[in-house]
Amino acid sequence: MIEFRGVTKRFDDGTIAVNGLDLVVEAGTITVFVGPSGCGKTTSLRMVNRMIDPTEGTVLVDGKDVLTVDPPKLRLGIGYVIQQAGLFPHRTVLDNVATVPLLSGWSKAKARSRAAELLELVGLPAELGKRYPVQLSGGQQQRVGVARALAADPPVLLMDEPFSAVDPVVREGLQDELLRLQAELDKTIVFVTHDIDEAVRIGEKVAVFREGGILAQYAPPAELLVRPADDFVASFVGKDRGYRSLSFVDASGVEVLPAETVRAPAASGGWQLLVDAERRPQGWSGPDGTVVPGGSLYEQGGAIRGALDAALSSPSGLGVVVDTDGRFAGVVEAHQVLDVIESHRG
């Protein structure tokens, strides 16, 4: 658990980066600090491992005031991932990952074998360990950065805009990877980003900061989208927050209907779903027998946003539902989904 109690940071030039922050980060959760630049989110993060010391107030990690611990010793127990990864260019990937174990006094052999385990954990092939950072792609470097931070198995992980320098597709992959890792490792993670979509996607709780270092709202993402505390949060969260909040609404009330499927297109006067031998959707056969690409697929058990999107993007008006193996399971219609959303409201 990380706790900020009345924390203020005033820099030498007089600017107030963080202003009276009171906040508790629960153990074993991902908490995201989000806000525009200059809102104090990174300063708040850096006060946890004493990269910056507060002017007033107290930061506690597991009940202990961080100011009472020698900074190097404190930091060995806290993982730290930064933008651009900050890998040591003069060391191999494996030695980069082994840094903290070696600093903590492990033997070289033990540190290296631990580093190899971690490369595997973050989804990198073992032979990458022999390479140097410059020989990796941006996404790979970030994975190494995460592996390096996890090497000594610290209970707390601080991540400062770790994915903002990679392109959107790679970023999404890294976010999924982080969620998968967290399900396995159960760390206390503080994650800083300026991207509200990223915050809502990975945070179990999100702290929205505003300029002047003031905490505007601290809530689970669904609540942030549905009940923003004020105009600032509402505008920061963005325009289609109503639609995006559906990501957090359960779709179990939506009835899945059967539908006609065919293996080959035929002019039947209506819409028929094309499937392969495994019953995986391949598109639609239109009324005159032409093949039309399908819309998005809704996987059973997902949030209601996926069901609505499947219905709205389908050429036939029928959203295609698949099971976890990707096999056709039925269809949903937009009006049904909207009915369920309405009933949640009531």
């Binding site: 491992n49 990269m51 900074p71 404190l74 930064i82 900050g86 890998l87 903290v100 600093l103 601080l158």
Partner: peptide, 22 residues
């Protein structure tokens, strides 16, 4: 690279470790 020095500090290197090793 400032990021590299920042990472070295953040990982718990002391001043002299940072100087000699990074």
């Amino acid at each position: 690279d400032r990021g590299v020095v920042d990472a070295a500090r953040g990982m718990g290197m002391t001043g002299s470790q940072r100087l000699w090793r990074v």
